[in-house]
Design a protein around this nucleic acid. Sequence first.
DNA 1: GTCTATATGCCGATAGAC
DNA 2: GTCTATCGGCATATAGAC
Lengths: 211, 211
Amino acid sequence: MKNDEKKPGRRSRAVAAKRAAILEAALTFFSQYGIHGTSLDKVAERADVSKTNLLYYYPSKEVLYIAVLKEILDVWLAPLRALRHDQDPLTAIRKYIRLKLEVSRDHPQASRLFCLEMLQGAPLLKGELAGDLKALVDEKAAIIEQWIVEGRLAGVQPQHLFFLLWATTQHYADFASQVEAITGQTLSDPEFFEQTLENVQRMIIEGIRVR
Amino acid sequence: MKNDEKKPGRRSRAVAAKRAAILEAALTFFSQYGIHGTSLDKVAERADVSKTNLLYYYPSKEVLYIAVLKEILDVWLAPLRALRHDQDPLTAIRKYIRLKLEVSRDHPQASRLFCLEMLQGAPLLKGELAGDLKALVDEKAAIIEQWIVEGRLAGVQPQHLFFLLWATTQHYADFASQVEAITGQTLSDPEFFEQTLENVQRMIIEGIRVR
DNA sequence: GTCTATATGCCGATAGAC
DNA sequence: GTCTATCGGCATATAGAC
């Protein structure tokens, strides 16, 4: 209690580890079955704590769910934050695609939970969406627009470009089972990852019209 | 019982109407809350039948869920079926984007339920995915490849092109709340629909590099 | 085919000892 | 902080009358 935030001692470090274990276990199930399809028993078992103990750290299922959501939102936003105007437009977007595809490879569960939340109308994320995300997107959209004005990027509406980028990169995480059913491969296969990256970058930058 | 399939009489027509009402109500809830987040009470209420009666027509929740899934799979596949080799490649793909975007506008719930199922690893659709879908995709991928060989389309791997097309068009249904949070608009607004279509078609066909 | 009543099981959350 | 025991509610599904 004394030093919960700063200079974590042995005790609070153990506590933090436990909270982290619970969060991770929760993400595993929430991202696949949703909040309703997940029982606290399962989460507790996976995190190797008792259900009562879990409820000691997170007083209700919804509190736990929101805690998980907040964590993943940062992961999801990180690549976009990296977009700056003092870069070459095409290089920047190529890099953005790589970063986002890495998220799909390394944090597919985060991507899926985010998607799940959106499908439901984002009831628990509406605030963040209208606030933080909207502000961030507006800021980055201005960069895109400037590039277009400078004639360094073809004329498209920035929001639609973002949607195209998000949708395409997340697809490999959210629809992984479909991707696997059709290609027989996963992003965790380095060869398939590079091949995917190459194709996505090329299609978005160059389009599919023959020159 | 006599003529359940052919020449539906008054009785079986009434039955069919009831089954349809149940399916529609079920889609409404399943697509938003998933199978676990949906109670049969709610579905029954919405379809204006008693819960017991619902269970008479669909003996279990899972049976009902699968029935709904099967229905929407057709809707989802229809645009792809329309793709033929004897078309101009770019015209065909432009049209495909329009059809798919119309599905996102007119059947957003179907799109969302499909997405939800994918997120879970498509446990109840794995069979169809590996069979029907895979076959259809292979067939259509061959068309794309032929266009490429003929020099009428830029060189990309057909599967990745499909993923790009699917992801982008479905995004406007599945992430509608995000789209609305950022643009303040919906596909049901005709102006926004045309603007979206225009942007998506241009980005995919032309890319974002300046010429 | 449709109803009322109910069996049955699961799960979130709390009480209270230690 | 962690445990055992348990409450209370909800939801699927069935039994059986009409």
